[in-house]
Design a protein around this nucleic acid. Sequence first.
DNA 1: GTGTTTCCTGACCATGTGGTCAAAATCCAG
DNA 2: CTGGATTTTGACCACATGGTCAGGAAACAC
Lengths: 201, 201
Amino acid sequence: MTRPQTRIQQKNSEAILEAALDVFSTYGYRGATLDQIAEVAGLSKPNLIYYFPSKEAMHQALLTRLLDTWLDPLRDLDPDGDPVAEILGYVRRKVELSRDYPRESRLFANEILQGAPRMRDAIEGDLKRLVDAKATVLDRWMRDGRIARLPPHHLIFSIWALTQHYADFDSQIRAVLGDGHDPFAEAGDYLDTLFRKLLAP
Amino acid sequence: MTRPQTRIQQKNSEAILEAALDVFSTYGYRGATLDQIAEVAGLSKPNLIYYFPSKEAMHQALLTRLLDTWLDPLRDLDPDGDPVAEILGYVRRKVELSRDYPRESRLFANEILQGAPRMRDAIEGDLKRLVDAKATVLDRWMRDGRIARLPPHHLIFSIWALTQHYADFDSQIRAVLGDGHDPFAEAGDYLDTLFRKLLAP
DNA sequence: GTGTTTCCTGACCATGTGGTCAAAATCCAG
DNA sequence: CTGGATTTTGACCACATGGTCAGGAAACAC
């Protein structure tokens, strides 16, 4: 039976995951330490282990929670909507995700960089199925002449690459742009233009 | 005085850097261990330290060597060449880099993900200067109406994002595409199309 | 209050880690 | 072959790391 979470459990589990996200997204799984997470969370190390059985479990909890947030915008792509509006809407929502959840983006990037050892199943399963389904929709739009003919999977990859880049490579982008820039606002405009031109039949 | 490297030094230093690249690019700086590098290199751990004073030094050696390889194609962008040909050539060379040096790409990605703690100077210095210079060239081409008007820095970012994505997220891409695909060949064609459409005035 | 459950921690442990060192093995010029 | 320089390593060290555990402190039900 699953215990009804007490207020304290709720609060501390949340604080731990929040701290773990900070540390894992910065240093990767192996580079992160429980001591570091404990300090960020403001709890003792044994207390962390009281709420999560292991470091691995914390990481897993974060990844599981992450995947849904990450895929929701793609799920929302409406096969019956206007093709260009739907795709541009997806791009915009992905830019917003990068802006509002950069740590989640970096956590994901870290995991994939390492060959996705802890997410392979989800990627080969849920993710692949969803992408294949949406690729079919894109393909139909292309055959109907409503958007330019492009390889649908790579079209999706390019949306991921361009939007996530602004979260994952944030430090590089800010260093190169220098002060007085709002990278995400500029990215939103630029990517809107880019995909508008790309999709024009 | 710098000693003339003996044959053995040459060979072992190379083997160590090669192994270190393998391990660092997969696990990041903190996640990599000397024991692991030693095993991959086929040398004992104390022998590693005989050739490099510390783990840090190995990482630094890799990063230094990396940056040049990484920036060369951008340096080659010829201000007096044909704009579209120059940019498409740059994209193609970056795709080839991703295909031929994926570990280097991932090493770089790992470093930037972590906020570039060991590369900040190079990024704010050499890299920024080079990008600014090339952005000026792009800007001139745009004002002359030879390519579409776009924010030059973001145009460069999008080239980086799209090309490096195929190396950094290789495992995800292969999992989603399934068997029977050559990601880099497809990427080459797709990105050629993409930038051709994007740059058309 | 009192008893019970939940929550928290100091002290501890086995293992892993980056790095040292003296001595052994190998290489190589003459 | 020989003697000095280079290369290699087993044994070792101090410290960090993930995790344990017995018992104490709060919280809560009555």
